[in-house]
Structures are given as C-alpha cells and as structure tokens.
Simulated scan of single mutants.
Amino acid sequence: MIEEGDWETIPDAEGLARKAASAALAVTYEAAGDFEATVMLTDDTHIRELNRDWRAKDKPTNVLSFPAPEMPGATGPRHLGDIALAYETLVRESEEESKELAHHFVHLIVHGVLHLLGYDHEVEAEAEIMEALEVKALATLGIADPYRDMAA
C-alpha cells in the first residue's frame, strides 16, 4: 500500500517487497507454510507519528514492524503483521551509506519481516543472529552484506 512518498523511484517496489519477504522467510524456521504481511510505503511525517504513538519515540525511522498475534484455528495464510517504511529516511540512508536505493529497500523489508517473526537486535547476541539472517537472505537476492563496511 503506497500512502505517501515518491515510491515510483523504486521500480516494481511491490515485486521487490515480495522477493525480500520470501527471502527472509526462506532463511528462518518459518519457511514452511503460507504467510502474508501488509507493507505500507509512507513518508517521514506519518512514520514519525507511528513511532511516537507506538514506541514513544518522536522522530522518523526507516522501518517499523507490528507483529500480529497468531490466531489458533485460523484458515488460510498466516498474517504475520504490518511493516511501514519511510521514503525520505530510506533515501537519506541509502545516500549516506552509498547503497543502491532498491537494495536498501529490500534490506529494510527483510529486516521488517524478521521482526514480524520475532527476531530483534536490542541485545548484541540477538543482533548478531538477526544480522546474519539478513545477510543470508540478501545474498540469495544478489545483494551484498549491508553491514560489511559498518564495522568500526
């Protein structure tokens, strides 16, 4: 769902999001089964509101994930939850980090899906697991390790 932002600068954003989500699922134990998630492409203004209202952080961010509870007895694909991405932050980060815009978009979708599956990066050990899964998923799509140049 495109709400706000200049998202047409990413050709076939929907197709890329599907490939990214599939790659994230394929590198986790969740690979079996049918899944769905909602992806909202928006702008910094709206994501700032979401971040403020849901995380008490009054600033824009690149991606937010809202995991959905598993519904026992539900039929059809399991709804994992919702992901929101902010266009201006995505563009700014890709420029600052010299990353291809579409590659950074795919990375954030992978990151968001992993959050929907319960992965996190608040603790160093968890961050290492999550980052390794991201790198593995991105590699299946021909995208280089986004963390390789960030080691200091």
Rank of each mutant, 00 (worst) to 15 (best):
T38L: 12
P67G: 07
I143Q: 03
T9L: 14
D82V: 10
M71T: 13
T28P: 08
I47S: 00
W7Y: 04
A31W: 11
P69R: 11
A26F: 02
D58W: 02
I2Y: 03
E14A: 12
N51Y: 05
T140W: 03
D58A: 09
A144T: 08
N51F: 07
A37T: 07
V110S: 07
D43P: 03
L90G: 01
L25M: 12
K57I: 14
G33N: 11
A32E: 15
D12F: 06
I10P: 05
E100H: 05
E96D: 14
T42W: 02
R55A: 12
E100G: 02
A23W: 03
G118K: 10
D44C: 07
H104D: 06
S94C: 06
E49R: 12
E14Q: 11
A24P: 08
G33F: 09
V135Y: 02
L16G: 06
A125C: 11
L114N: 10
A127C: 12
V123D: 15
P77T: 06
E126V: 10
Y119F: 15
K59A: 14
P60W: 00
L108R: 11
L80W: 08
M1P: 08
L85A: 05
S98F: 09
D53E: 10
E70D: 11
V123S: 13
A32C: 09
A84Q: 01
I83C: 04
T38E: 13
T45E: 13
P146S: 03
H115M: 10
A125L: 13
K136S: 14
W54F: 13
A125I: 14
L101T: 05
E8S: 14
A139Y: 02
E88W: 05
H103C: 03
A31D: 08
P67T: 08
E126G: 14
D82G: 09
A127G: 15
K57T: 12
H115V: 08
T28R: 06
D149E: 14
Y29D: 14
D120C: 15
A37G: 07
D6P: 03
H115Y: 12
L25D: 04
E70C: 05
G73W: 06
T42H: 03
K19D: 13
R48P: 00
H46S: 07
G76Q: 05
L50F: 02
V110C: 09
R92C: 05
A74E: 12
I109L: 07
L80N: 09
L138T: 06
R148C: 09
V27L: 01
D44R: 04
D6A: 10
R148E: 15
E97Y: 11
A152W: 14
A24W: 01
E100Q: 05
T61V: 13
G112C: 07
R55Q: 11
E8Y: 10
E4L: 10
D43T: 03
V106M: 04
G5K: 00
W54N: 12
E36R: 14
M130W: 08
E96P: 06
Y29E: 15
R18F: 06
G15H: 01
D43K: 01
D82I: 11
G118V: 11
F105W: 03
W7K: 06
A32M: 12
P72Y: 01
R92F: 04
F35V: 07
L116H: 05
H107R: 13
L41V: 01
A20S: 12
A23K: 04
E4C: 02
A31F: 13
L50V: 04
A68E: 11
A68Y: 09
D149A: 13
G81I: 08
T28L: 05
D149H: 13
F66D: 10
V110Y: 04
S98Q: 13
E95P: 02
H107T: 08
